[in-house]
């Protein structure tokens, strides 16, 4: 039983990181109908910024996190401006291919700049774990879950109660109508990219602290799994991304714990296939008819 709960805690830990990353996918998809495959690499960039802020500049964790969020947000906006905006009215497949290109560009640029060797992320929360009987809860796990939770609540508040949030909802519902209502669509899309990328950076830093390493290709796997999480929860639906993240984290952890690590990825990705076959709109997705 202790082992079961321990595995569940492990799952919550990694799941909350997936959820954070999945938010970026889902927000961007919701608003421009683009699967931004470069999102995983933005989390890598965020992790690198965090790494240098913590090691080279000796900044405290909070500032390092902030620096990573700001720089990643700017990068997200820049990518949108340079790579996606010119293709706004092109077929969706063109934008998708561009996203893959951006992803490779980021990976290889960072490999060129910092080498392929993994750097070691410093241990930030190096304090004694909390012991509950036989249970052992590392403080990092608690901080990861709390920080992810805070980000999600913050995002929900922004979307629900601010003018920008209202604009985002409007654009995602119908961008032409939103434009007619006087909403600055381009600016709203830009802000969406910024917020999504900043959340990705938080995910990246938490991921690299949890697994100790920063390297140019680190964004690929968590990126793909977060994408599965977003689809599972219902792509475009924000609470869905969070739910999906936790489910994927749990599935992964229990598979590793009770089946075999080698099966974990296979099972996570078969979830993607099953969802696409049986309920493409995801768990929380609305079954909207395609408008003709």
């Amino acid at each position: 039983m202790t082992q079961f709960i321990q595995q569940m805690i492990n799952g919550l830990h990694v799941g909350s990181i997936y959820a954070l990353i999945a938010l970026g996918y889902t927000m961007v998809y919701g608003i421009v109908k683009l699967i931004n495959f470069a999102h995983g690499d933005i989390l890598m960039v965020g992790a690198y910024v965090g790494f240098f802020a913590l090691t080279a500049f000796n900044l405290p964790f909070g500032l390092a996190l902030l620096a990573a969020m700001v720089l990643s947000a700017l990068l997200g906006m820049a990518i949108d401006k340079v790579a996606y905006k010119p293709l706004r009215n092109a077929p969706r497949i063109s934008a998708l291919i561009t996203a893959l290109g951006v992803s490779m560009f980021l990976q290889n640029t960072f490999r060129l700049l910092f080498g392929a060797n993994p750097r070691k992320m410093p241990a930030v929360f190096n304090v004694q774990p909390i012991l509950l009987g036989d249970l052992r809860i590392p403080p990092l796990t608690i901080i990861t879950i709390l920080l992810s939770g805070a980000c999600m609540v913050g995002l929900e508040l922004i979307i629900r109660f601010t003018k920008t949030g209202k604009a985002m909802r409007g654009v995602s519902e119908d961008s032409k109508a939103a434009k007619l209502m006087g909403i600055n669509v381009d600016r709203t899309i830009s802000i969406t990219f910024a917020i999504g990328s900043a959340l990705g950076a938080v995910g990246g830093i938490l991921y690299s602290i949890s697994y100790y390493q920063v390297e140019p290709y680190m964004g690929m796997m968590p990126g793909l799994k977060a994408f599965v999480a977003a689809v599972l929860g219902g792509i475009g639906v924000i609470p869905g991304a969070m739910l999906g993240g936790f489910v994927i984290g749990g599935v992964e952890s229990f598979t590793k714990g009770y089946l075999s690590t080698t099966w974990a990825d296979a099972i996570v990705f078969s979830i993607l296939i099953l969802v696409l076959v049986f309920k493409p709109s995801g768990i929380l997705g609305k079954n909207t008819k395609e408008k003709v």
Binding site: Q3, S253, G257
Partner: peptide
């Protein structure tokens, strides 16, 4: 025998098993 792959970064699940 606990298996993992090159792409794995999260070992807590199998390490928890080993600990047990």
């Amino acid at each position: 025998e606990e298996n993992y792959t090159d792409s794995d970064t999260d070992f807590k699940a199998i390490l928890t098993n080993i600990k047990a």
